[in-house]
Amino acid sequence: MESTLDIFVKAIFSENMIFAYFLGMCSYLAVSKTVKTAVGLGAAVIFVLLVTVPVNYLLENYLLKEGALSWVDPNNATWAEMDLSFLSFIMFIAVVASIVQLVEMLVEKFAPALYGALGIFLPLIAVNCSILGGALFMQERQYTSIVDATAFSLGSGIGWFIAIVAIAAIREKIRYSQVPAPLRGLGITFILTGLMGIAFMSFMGIKYGGEKEEAEDTTQTSSIELVDDTQTNK
């Protein structure tokens, strides 16, 4: 069982949205010309991911998943048999689009300064693959609690932020280098992203949460014993 910290750190580094799954590449390439705009978009992505993934988690677990509707009437088997998961795409994208709209209005009303910084990026985010991707990964990996799902969404957002700010910084500097003319702009950005991806892959071998491990060992063994007990009881 992965700990929440594992999920969080993994989402930032070894399962980075950009470098491992290429999610949100369109806006990543389009808005990474200067660090300032990159920070704005990155912050907006963190924010929206952090809001939409937990909402979609609740939707998935209390509405869409097979047996998720059993809370309506625990005694009635027809509710428990219901499987609405084929609707998940349309539900998720509706949630994302409406939350983006809502967030935009709320930010405009209550934090005008933040709106000035994020404003133009928020509508872009509704069609950013990383937001819907976050929801779909959450569904596929079946996180056991909403805390894990939130940790995953926050980690993914931070990972995306790091990636776009890093590439924007490199692109600002690369203007002073002699890049071959046909590679300038898009071509070199692709290759740089590839190289950064290789660098990020070195995080894959890390065992996360090493310090906590010893403390957890005892709890783990006890939980295993508990499981054994229940099995023998059966």
Binding site: R175, A181, L183, G185, G187, I191, T193, G194, L195, I198
Partner: peptide
């Protein structure tokens, strides 16, 4: 995954060598 990016980068490179109008300033 990173190699996919690099291959696309190379395709873009070849395409822009053939068609100079597509080249960017920076």
């Amino acid at each position: 995954p990173p190699m996919a990016l690099i291959i696309v980068g190379v395709i873009i490179w070849i395409q822009r060598i053939r068609n100079k109008e597509l080249q960017e300033e920076h």
